[in-house]
Design a protein around this nucleic acid. Structure first.
Length: 967
RNA sequence: GCUCGAGUGGUGGAAUUGGUAGACACGUUGGACUUAAAAUCCAAUGGCCAUUACGGCCGUGCGGGUUCAAGUCCCGCCUCGAGUACCA
């Protein structure tokens, strides 16, 4: 090769000079390797649990280690949090900045199903790759605290929390979780009549003697209705072919996304988390934390609090059916009770079967069956079509005594409220549309409102009419009056309803945390915490069993021996001493719901964390991650934290004071255009007026000027090997479009190649320079040359000696340089505190440009600058710092303090504007009075020429800012 | 539909409390250095009209308004993005 000549072939003196030159040049590869090794060896970023310093905890959402590795979008948040961590260290804080892996998950399991490779092996390989990629970016993580959710030493504590939740119930009076023993105590003394608890809706009221008379097994079943984690029959999307439950978004057009198998709705016994017990506190807590408003809004909507009343209607007995069934509804408008003209039940409502008359039965059955076939999503997507059917039954209006027909309609959802609504067509648009469609009367109960076209839903301007004792009342007053009346009659009460549902906590998967649960006659029993972890068993196959049991059903050793407290062979199950273990595993969010606390004391084998650790670290000061976790991880983890708080194990009931959502980095896809029906590709400029098919080209085949490497493209897509490429001006240009970064769009940019070519410091600076952290922005590697040139310029600023050797002058810095430095300190400090990292990169560029043209080499300026820039570009900073004569890491330095005195000016270049438009500037002393400024401006000849003989009507002078002359 | 964001040069973006719109970069053009390339350095770069100027007009999605002064505040729209979805 031409470029790889060997130095030994040249004379020794030339070789020495050449070597010297290389040493003086900005050799980022050598520098970055050197300092990464140094940090690892010296554990530079290890955080201490005992420190006199103030703590600061900076957390990133830990990644799932996928096989594809990192692309340039992933490190964005990590770079920002790293800058902040390094900044806080320089400001004298003891910073906890850990990293780990959310290493249970589906892709590894899917790979295991296909290849037989154990997910633990795949996971280990992927983690290694992630670690290499993270390390090469120079992050200041304290790796001694790494956690992995799939590590038994970690999931031991996930299992432990599960047991604690099982042993707890929610006392609504005390508004906190309590131990189940307290509940048992109360049940045995007073029954449950006066116990206000978050519990199943169907919990019967029992007396103390009824409780005391219960068998052990019966008691256990009863307690499950109260426990914070409990077994319940839940309706799920079951795919028999895959042997698994699917999430709504895994179903497309009624069949599974993967494989296209049919999906049915099926009731299954599943573990659930009683997160609804915490609905109000999860809502209230949002007021106390500094999280982005869109994220708070998402959680608020998800929790979906609505205030109203529950009202019970009773069906009219008829000749064919002489019983009267209660139908409970929830409504936010109890004030419109007199406007009810029909009732609507969800097709799945249990009463449908009981109340439907013989005459209507066939039609109702057909309707129920048809809507059961439609997935929830289908039903929701199709809002326009109004469907429903009359049951033949009536309820009696509790006040007017009128007969109200009962319909079913799939716009009523079984899972929300009671699955039944009182329909008030004059006050609700959906009810209105339904009534119109089926010719049901629409009585008007609003004073002075026209409802001939649409419903009237404006609460604020409501005046009730045609409503007996509510006539003339406002929404507020009518609501209070009707609730009082309902309560007196004993058929309703004021109620707060939440959209939030309890969270299903079972998965029919292999690669997740096993439940520490065995079954005695179908009753779940917890394994004693001291025998944890219950480790995942080995299985032959990762698929569900032939009988449809989860993958753990394939394990041969998956039984619990209560004598020895060990996992034993299934053969030994006798239901006396040896019992079957739970076959489900926990969902993905289990492991991520307390990991932030575990980092505080990750090696503790006695407790999830020590009291000392939690009372020192307390909570996360800054949490950075994507908004896509708004209603998943970020809600569940708050729930667990509140539970932990109730139990007194953590000191804060919100675990993250401040949260920032980093934006997504988008890819800039490249397109080549093939003329329709031909095998001819046209350069971008030649496509005008032609019919062309755009085809993705891999972005790595396109240069910064959008020119395609045609030969490379032919090789990459052999089917176009013989295609014709019509160039313009000798080059073939591609089209560009911004899309989500994804493999299938061939627009993924890998950080490794960039690190190789420009170095980690350049990549870090560039990712920050792209734009505001929270904004989505397109990636374009071409721009990185700007920050790379900046780093070289920075390097040169410190290498002004002979042959480009390192040089700092010991002379006193001059005023100009001091001004440059201090305005940089000011701006960069403010920017970091505002998370405005893009603007601080510009500030560094301006600073280095100024100092370079000032030919500043003073230690008094250039040393503080190293510290200032070190959070952003830590490798080059360490190198310069050590060359400046320091033998400890720059991360132990002190962040420079801004001093106002260097920025004080005595004159100002005033913009002089006429009618608000700037025409010229005038430099004036800053100590002039308003009058003097006005005099000097008006006396200037440029002002006179602007006025052109006219006189100034008014002169506005804002000292230190602007002068505006009104003509 | 609802909720939340965002619309500024060819591109990414800056303008922190209303006060010089386009900082800093990329790209482009011209020049210096070089056999050449890379790298580096210098200059120009919102549009239009003039080029006699230290010149004029227009310009921050659109239409109004408040103000001496609006990218920024108010009212009404448009477009794009994200989330959510018949929530009673």
């Amino acid at each position: 090769m031409v470029l790889r000549f060997s130095l030994s072939g040249i004379t020794p003196i030339f070789a020495a000079i050449a070597r010297e030159r290389i040493r003086m040049k900005y050799d980022f590869r050598r520098i970055e390797d050197k300092w990464q090794e140094y940090w690892a060896k010296n554990q530079t970023f290890k955080a201490e649990n005992n420190s006199a310093k103030e703590k600061f905890y900076v957390l990133d959402m830990f990644p799932y280690p996928s096989g594809a590795g990192l692309h340039v979008g992933h490190p964005l948040g990590y770079i920002a949090s790293d800058i902040y961590s390094r900044f806080k260290r320089l400001k004298g804080f003891n910073v906890l900045h850990p990293m780990g892996y959310d290493s249970f998950g589906l892709p590894a399991e899917q790979y295991a199903i296909q290849t037989g490779q154990h997910p633990a092996i795949t996971t280990e390989t992927n983690i290694k790759r992630y670690r290499e990629q993270l390390d090469q970016l120079g992050f200041s993580f304290d790796w001694s605290r790494e956690v992995r959710t799939s590590d038994p030493a970690y999931y031991k504590w996930t299992q432990w929390i599960f047991i604690q939740l099982f042993n707890s119930w929610y006392d609504q009076e005390a508004d906190r979780a309590e131990d189940v023993s307290v509940l048992i105590e109360r049940l045995s003394k007073e029954g449950n009549k006066n116990i206000k608890a978050a519990c199943d809706d169907d919990t019967p009221v029992i007396t103390a003697s009824e409780w005391n008379a219960m068998e052990e097994e019966e008691r256990e079943r009863f307690l499950l209705k109260y426990r914070l984690t409990y077994l319940a029959d839940t309706e799920v999307n079951w795919c028999p072919a895959l042997g698994t439950v699917l999430a709504n978004d895994e179903i497309v057009n009624g069949v599974s996304e993967r494989g296209g198998h049919p999906v049915v709705r099926k009731k299954m016994t599943q573990w659930s988390m009683r997160i609804t017990a915490y609905a109000q506190r999860l809502l209230d807590g949002l007021q106390t934390i500094d999280w982005p408003q869109p994220l708070k809004d998402a959680q608020t909507n998800w929790i979906g609090r609505s205030v109203g009343a529950s009202i019970t209607f009773y069906t009219e007995p008829t000749e064919e059916n002489n019983s009267s069934y209660p139908i409970e509804v929830f409504t936010t408008r109890p004030d419109t009770l007199f406007g009810v003209s029909f009732m609507t039940l969800a097709p799945e409502h249990p009463l449908v079967e009981k109340i439907t008359t013989k005459a209507q039965k066939a039609e109702v059955d057909r309707y129920v069956e048809a809507s059961a076939k439609r997935s929830e999503r289908d039903r929701m997507a199709d809002v326009k079509t109004i469907t429903g059917v009359f049951t033949g039954a009536y309820v009696k209006h509790p006040f007017s005594g009128e007969k109200v027909p009962v319909w079913i309609g799939d716009y009523v959802l079984a899972g929300y409220g009671t699955g039944a609504v009182m329909s008030v067509p004059c006050g609700d648009q959906r009810d209105y549309d339904f009534a119109r469609h089926f010719n049901i009367p629409i009585p008007n109960i609003f004073e002075g409102v026209d409802i001939s076209e649409e419903a009237f839903a404006d609460k604020e301007n409501t005046v009730i009419a045609n409503s007996d004792f509510l006539n003339g009342l406002s929404y507020k007053k009518a609501t209070a009056a009707i609730i009082k009346a309902l309560e007196e009659k004993g058929i309703g009460k004021g109620k707060v309803n939440y959209r939030l549902r309890d969270a299903v906590f079972s998965r029919q998967r292999y690669w997740g945390e096993p439940f520490p649960v065995y079954y005695v006659n179908g009753i779940p029993k917890m394994i004693d915490a001291k025998h944890l972890p219950l480790t995942l068993p080995e299985v032959e196959k990762y698929l569900p069993t032939e009988t449809g049991e989860p993958p753990l059903g394939n394990a041969t050793d998956w039984a619990w021996d209560t004598k020895t407290n060990k996992v034993v062979s299934n053969d030994r199950i006798d239901h006396k001493e040896v019992f079957p273990l739970e076959l489900n595993t926990m969902p993905g969010w289990a492991g991520s719901s307390q990991y932030f606390n575990r980092y505080m004391d990750p090696l503790n084998d006695e407790a999830i964390f020590s009291n000392e650790a939690i009372s020192y670290w307390q909570d996360v000061d800054l949490y950075i991650g994507g908004i896509e976790h708004a209603t998943g991880h970020l809600l569940y983890s708050r729930f667990w934290q509140k539970f932990m708080y109730d139990k007194g194990w953590v000191v804060k009931d919100e675990y993250a004071k401040k949260l920032i959502n980093q934006g997504m980095i988008l890819g800039t896809s490249a397109f080549v255009y093939r003329e329709e029906g031909t095998n001819r590709f046209l350069s971008r400029g030649l496509t005008e007026g032609k019919k062309v098919d755009p085809i993705h080209a891999d972005v790595s085949l396109v240069n910064a000027s959008d020119e395609l490497d045609v030969e490379g493209f032919r090789e990459w897509r052999p089917e176009f090997k013989d295609a014709e490429f019509v160039k313009e001006k000798g080059v073939f240009q591609v089209g560009r479009e911004v899309e989500k970064m994804s493999k299938s769009k061939y627009n993924v940019v890998n950080p490794d190649a960039i690190c190789e070519e420009y170095g980690a410091d350049a990549l870090r600076l560039y990712e920050m320079f792209l734009g505001p952290l929270e904004q989505s922005k397109p990636w374009n590697t071409a721009g990185i040359t700007g920050v790379f040139a900046f780093l070289k310029k920075l390097w040169r600023l410190y290498h002004s000696g002979e042959h480009g050797s390192f040089y700092l002058s010991e002379n006193e810095p001059d005023q100009q340089a001091l001004k440059t430095l201090h305005k940089t300190i000011k701006k960069v400090t403010e920017d970091i505190e505002d998370f405005s990292f893009n603007t601080s990169v510009s500030t560094f560029m301006i600073c280095v440009n100024e100092l370079s043209s000032q030919k500043c080499h003073a230690r008094g300026i250039l040393e503080p600058l190293i510290v200032l820039i070190s959070p952003y570009a830590p490798h080059i900073a360490e190198e310069l710092w050590s060359k400046a004569g320091h033998n400890t890491s720059v991360s132990h330095a002190e962040f420079p303090e801004f001093d106002e005195k260097f920025l004080v000016e005595d004159q100002k270049e005033y913009p002089i504007s006429f009618n608000g438009k700037m025409r010229f500037t005038l430099t004036l002393p800053l100590d002039l009075s308003k009058e003097e400024i006005e005099k000097r401006v008006l006396g200037d000849e440029k002002t006179q020429s602007q006025l052109g003989g006219k006189s100034a009507r008014k002169v506005i002078v804002v000292p230190g800012k602007i002068v505006n002359i009104v003509v």
